[in-house]
Design a protein around this nucleic acid. Sequence first.
DNA 1: AACTAAGCGGAACGCTCTTCCAGAACTATA
DNA 2: TATAGTTCTGGAAGAGCGTTCCGCTTAGTT
Lengths: 194, 194
Amino acid sequence: MTQDTASRPLRADAQRNIDALLEAAKTVFRTSGVDAPAKEIADLAGVGVGTLYRHFPKRSDLVTAVFQHEVDACAAAAPALADENEPGVALEKWLHRYTEFLATKRGLASALHSGDPAFDALPCYFMERLGPALDSLLEAAVEAREIRALVSPQDLLYAVSKLSLPLGDEEAGHGRRMVDLLVDGLRHGAGPSR
Amino acid sequence: MTQDTASRPLRADAQRNIDALLEAAKTVFRTSGVDAPAKEIADLAGVGVGTLYRHFPKRSDLVTAVFQHEVDACAAAAPALADENEPGVALEKWLHRYTEFLATKRGLASALHSGDPAFDALPCYFMERLGPALDSLLEAAVEAREIRALVSPQDLLYAVSKLSLPLGDEEAGHGRRMVDLLVDGLRHGAGPSR
DNA sequence: AACTAAGCGGAACGCTCTTCCAGAACTATA
DNA sequence: TATAGTTCTGGAAGAGCGTTCCGCTTAGTT
């Protein structure tokens, strides 16, 4: 899933280590934030710190890779959910999947706004991957007349983002409730597509 | 303006150092972010690092103090602007003053969302100080029939916050333009108060 | 002037980041 | 399968930063 773009195909053990590092980094970022010690990540992955720095010379490289990895996983969940559920339910489940994804990104949001140009491309990647994924779910739901057709995937993604990464102080679960409300709102106007 | 709540009145040189540290930290936070080296702040303030840690044992103590200091300054600007300008202009100028304040807070926003409970009280402090300040400007402008009366200070503060601390990638100045638009929107419906 | 205690500075310690290279591990070839 | 050639690995080493600690300084008091 990683590093198969060009050049020669990377040695097998190296690929294994990269995967282990991504998995470890995902876990550590969630528990200790994006500024967690490099050694913690290397230890969890079962490799030396040198190996970490060989594959991800800058911290932002690792952060970016983990982020893209998770965005990909989130996007990939859409077709699976569409197969297994009614369109409206699939949409709802995917949005919750998306909220869970966002919930693990508190620390990452800080990095995104840190001004480091290394992160500039992430929001684009985000939209490019998730936009179409959500769009297919929306279209199916509109087709099935379970929701109305008046929302763009971009708007919905941003709306859910802002609901899930709140400014200020508020109790847990607030984001999830607001997302439910949003989906119900979409359902309300459902009917024959014009 | 600082540390005069209780106990004995703090030695004069200590108070001077505290002020110098706050001033230095404000500058350094702006240029190097909230994670800047402690020594950089201490040097700029002309004191040893020990002095910094004596007054602000944890980094969050310093961050919190600087933040409150700046919130106070921003709130204090409201009456002055109200004296020197027409109500509508005072409102507009203050909102721009507020945007400038927010613009220096990129790094701080990260800290706020970092999950450190030390920062939990900041958003409340923020609203408590700025809410009334903005409210007085709004009331004066409504009274003078320069804007309509349909907005709460909380909504306006949050709206401007979100416009000024954008998610995603966008060119500079976007926040400022959107704030202008918002103020024009307020003006549009102006007329006899009901 | 002398005393007291608050306050100061910066050396020292420990932790983390990052680099580097000798040697291990893998792959291709014969 | 044996060998050569390359990639990749691990962790020691060097540098830098955060934080603590304590002997000395200095403001305030009598």
